[in-house]
Amino acid sequence: MKRTQFSSPVLPYLFLLPQMTVVFIFFYWPSVQAIQSSFYLEDPFGFGSTFVGLSNYTDALGSGEYLKIAWFTAVFTIVVTFLSLSIGLLLAAKADGVIRGSSSYKTLLICVYAIAPPVAGLIGMMFFDQHIGPFVKLAAWAGWDMKVGINYYDTAFAMIVVSVWKQIPYNFIFFLSGLQGVPVSIREAAAIDCRSPARRFRTVMLPLLAPTAFFLLVINMTYSLFDTFGIIDVIVKDKAANNPITLVYKVYMDGFRGNDIGGSSAQSVILMIVVFVLTVFQFRFIERRVHYN
């Protein structure tokens, strides 16, 4: 905190008022409502609701469908996180090494960051389209009868490809700025001690990148859990029938298509707990990192 501060009986409250109003109306109120309605069974026609205790939770956690979706979400999150982190790191390491054309590479590699997930999903759908999609033709040529939107695994494949594609630039930006933050003196000292660039990268640069990587790990997991909503929605188009979906998409489907308010809220609360754990993990880590610096 600052050594000197203003003191005023009114001003700080006045300055905080707009932010706090928004936070209260659009964050605390709905969050409390989510928790509250997760304990109730709402009448679908709007005639009141009954307290049912934890049964919305046990219904969700006990249903095979929910567990299947949770399993898919976990696999999806791990695969997307792993692929987009490693491709991002590879490209950043190479972009950090070259001198000629490095700024053009950078510009071209980051611009996909600005594309909205559903727009990325739409482009992806065209590439995986039954009639015009080059990927489908390519797969057919290799003997793979790809049916995105009909076959469970093919749809999952398309979702992963699009989600990874969309996330690579973000990881690239952070890895590159992490690499460029490594002091020249350390690079020179490493170059004197070790001739192999690959080994140098592994033993010197990678440990220095660890904080960035951990930070990105959490960010990529939240991305796969939540921000891929647009991609998934465009690919499955409200027909979850035989398609893989993530937990967030199920919250949306149950709440807005199925009108199961209690069940949807209970699922929301379960997700809140997941995010909460992830965030606490992240902040503990960041505390440590600040300590190092």
Partner: peptide, 28 residues
Amino acid sequence: YFRFRLGVVFFWMIFTTLLLPLEVRILP
């Protein structure tokens, strides 16, 4: 920049919003 009694409380109340993305509280 201000010293006031509820400063820390407000700070944490704002901080908490980072924990829950909009996607988990869409219906309410």
